[in-house]
Simulated scan of single mutants.
Amino acid sequence: MQVFYATQFVLPLPAGHRFPMAKYQLLRDRLVQELPELRLMQAEAASDGELALAHAPGYVRSIADGSVAAEILREIGFPWSAGMAERARRSVGATIAACRIALQEGIAANIAGGTHHASAERGGGFCVFNDAAVASRLMQAESVRRQRALRVAVIDLDVHQGNGTARIFRKDPSVFTLSLHGRNNFPFRKEAGDLDVDLPDGCRDDEYLCALDGALQELEHRFSPDLVIYLAGADPHEGDRLGRLKLTWDGLEARDRRVFDWAWQRGVPLAFAMAGGYGRRIEDTVQAQVNTFTVASQYWRRWQNRSR
């Protein structure tokens, strides 16, 4: 299974910053040690033209040259630097590459990504560009020879609502946005997507999985995707600082299996990104992500057996 990374492009953050930048390298190291069947590849940077498929060109330029407004930087939560701009492009490029490979092999991944709070003209919530939105639009542009437009379902299981993704695609019937998230969590003003399921603080495994089952059933009734982009946030875990939900390790693994199996049973290729994770112990966030990759690898092997 191919996995794309940009871990060498580290965003310089001030001491004490609450974003756990180290998790990406820790995850990459664990994957190399524990899942040798994965093929890790460095991601290319998304171009201005690719980013402009989902973002206003002026916003793209402002991130590139550092002229982005101070209030937007405050919303993003990162100081501007050339490294910040490059890392944001590489994160989008990794999801683009994962989508291309998933359409060929069934499943592929981005070690980072899931930057779902970025909308067309601004970022927010540690998200500069929206990788799922750019990749969706680019995969559609690259499939122009199909009899109909490529249909993409974004299944967003980060604990925070995917407001930026919902806003970008709110009038686009070719992309279906499903978000399962904490009712009382960031963003506090939600953006209506195609299917939003909000969950109470303290939600545990059984309640969460029942809600997910219902959401996947409704997705199937309303939309037939050609590609799934899955945001596999680690932040619903009970050990997350920002999550407010109470999923166990088993609950998170069952969540992942439901999504991968849903796509597998329907023959829909799936690209996934790691999205959020803010564990009180960074090792817990990384473990949740390793578990997601372990499940993904099992389903990738099923895809290869199917194609033989």
Rank of each mutant, 00 (worst) to 15 (best):
V3S: 04
V3Q: 03
F4K: 01
F9Y: 10
P12S: 14
P14E: 13
A15G: 04
H17M: 09
P20S: 12
K23Q: 12
Q25D: 12
L26Y: 10
L27C: 06
E37R: 13
M41W: 00
Q42Y: 06
A46W: 02
A46R: 06
A54S: 12
H55Q: 09
S62V: 11
A70D: 15
I72K: 03
I76A: 06
W80T: 07
M84E: 09
R90D: 05
S91L: 12
T95A: 03
A102F: 05
A102T: 03
Q104I: 06
I107C: 01
H116D: 01
H116Q: 10
A120F: 04
F126T: 02
N130A: 09
A132F: 05
A133E: 06
R137T: 02
R137W: 08
Q140G: 04
A141F: 07
E142C: 10
S143W: 01
V144A: 14
Q147H: 07
R148H: 13
A149P: 12
L157M: 15
D158N: 11
T165Q: 07
R167P: 07
F169S: 02
R170C: 09
K171E: 15
D172Y: 07
P173W: 04
P173C: 06
S179M: 12
H181V: 05
F186N: 03
P187K: 00
L199H: 02
L199F: 10
R204L: 11
Y208C: 02
L216S: 00
E220W: 02
F223M: 11
V228M: 08
D235K: 06
G239S: 14
W249A: 13
D250F: 00
D250L: 02
G251M: 08
L252E: 04
E253C: 14
R255E: 12
P269Y: 03
M274T: 06
G277P: 00
R281V: 10
R281N: 14
V290M: 10
V290Y: 07
Q298D: 10
R301Y: 11
R302N: 07
Q304M: 10
N305G: 11
N305M: 05
R306M: 12
S307G: 00
